[in-house]
Write a protein that binds this DNA or RNA. Structure first.
Lengths: 256, 256
DNA sequence: CCAAAAGTGTTTACAGTACACCCATGT
DNA sequence: ACATGGGTGTACTGTAAACACTTTTGG
């Protein structure tokens, strides 16, 4: 088994990390009309967790979160923002954690720093699913995408709570910022965009009104028609126009 | 000079605290048409800072924030919520910090834990100004209320950034929750409530429309008239009715 | 009686909702 | 031709904005 840098860091109780604090990333993607999150499955278990990591002593929280995201998805610049800090002293059961690591083939002493109390900062990332190839990590068996409404049964620690909070924060984001366009590919149809909104909000929207509202924001550029697909009228393709969005900043309720 | 428990904790590098993490509280109050925040002035300086503290190893972040708030204001149950985590490694200049402590009559070695990098969790509290008597602390000369729009010139560390972020978060809160009523006394006039909204948003609102909107929420109870005051019609007093608010939870956009 | 503040009414405009209609295309 | 999905039009509704009017009170 080949060990990564992180593995050595763990075993050697890397002193370059800030003690007692970690980062967990909820990485959202959108694919086939499903809102997906990236989860990691620990080796030799059926237990999933959020991708996370620690903060180097000379790095900011945002830098650490970006580094962790880059490491897991290969994406360097995307929408990434903290949404909550989780600080319950019982949020992680150290016994459960140690058991998981053992199953992973990593046998750590019970006084290892990993099993101390950690506060964790929740970040969510909105990534273009089509550009992502999840990387594997340590000797975790798998890392893969899961429908947010159909998560695995066993999720480690308080990570299910973190996922719930992240989804709630994402819903609030819809009303305030244009960041959700980071979840779309470069070009998309109005139907696909509507499907994203419906999936996040978990409710149906009226097609006609959705279209009008989106176009009225003055942030979309209409391209040539897409001809593919089925027995029906071919839809236009749209592109998110960040220039227009910037220009309309003060005429709509989005951004600050 | 009499020293408090906190003083001894500091000098002895209390090991019961979580290392590397702190809490800073932005305590909002409303008085004489001004949105106030509670600041602390370090002894023998003109430097102000937010009231803050550390987290005991067995306590949650929320518990720690409540404890710190209680300690500073004597209020035990009020609206208190985290709004952001500040994690820039340069957010506090340790030299500045040590200098301030020295001026305070507390001479600590430069490798004291206080001067290590700290991540800080920002909490805001919304308190009823009429019920608060700020407590003094350590040998800080003063702790007092300041108009959020007329802060002291010298504010320590990144605490001015924290204040700005807190004010922005408070403005967002106006649209989503009814928590701002915690800033009002038990009874108040519609004009006073409008003044609170205007002060937070820093813009004028139309009296007639504000009144209609507030009443339409169905969360206010109208009491007897207030007869005091000047040469004009005496206003009604209102009381925030948390029962009504609960009942109307699903008929308006507030709360979750 | 008048000024000042409080409370209510009215008009208008715009945004959200629901639904109807037309368009384009592959089978 | 027709079923399917895409795009537009329109009437209805509710809320928000602006402004006018009335009420109460002290001087």
């Amino acid at each position: 088994m080949e060990h990564t840098t992180e593995y050595k860091d763990l075993v050697n109780q890397n002193q370059d990390f800030l003690p007692g604090i970690s980062i967990d990333c909820v990485i959202f993607g959108f694919h086939e009309n499903q809102l997906k999150v990236l989860l990691i499955k620990f080796g030799n278990t059926q237990i999933y967790s959020l991708p996370g990591g620690f903060i180097y002593k000379e790095e900011s929280l945002d830098e650490a979160a970006n580094r962790i995201l880059d490491h897991r998805t290969g994406i360097e610049d995307t929408y990434l923002e903290q949404f909550y800090i989780f600080g319950d002293p019982k949020r992680v059961n150290p016994e459960e954690h140690r058991w998981i690591m053992q199953k992973n083939g990593i046998d750590l002493p019970s006084d290892h720093f990993l099993f101390n109390r950690h506060i964790t900062v929740g970040y969510y990332a909105l990534v273009d699913f089509t550009k992502i190839q999840p990387h594997s990590y340590l000797n975790h068996e798998e890392s893969g995408w899961f429908d947010i409404y159909d998560l695995p049964e066993t999720i480690a620690f308080d990570h299910r709570d973190i996922l719930t909070k992240a989804l709630n924060s994402l819903r609030l984001l819809l009303d305030h910022k244009l960041a959700v366009f980071n979840l779309m590919p470069e070009t998309f149809t109005m139907g696909e965009l509507q499907s994203l909104y419906e999936t996040i909000l978990n409710k149906k929207l009226l097609r006609a009104n959705f279209q009008r509202k989106m176009l009225s924001l003055g942030i979309l550029e209409r391209l040539d028609k897409k001809w593919g697909g089925g027995a029906h009228k071919a839809p236009y393709l749209y592109r998110f126009d960040s220039q227009k969005a910037e220009a309309n900043k003060f005429s709509n309720q989005f951004e600050e």
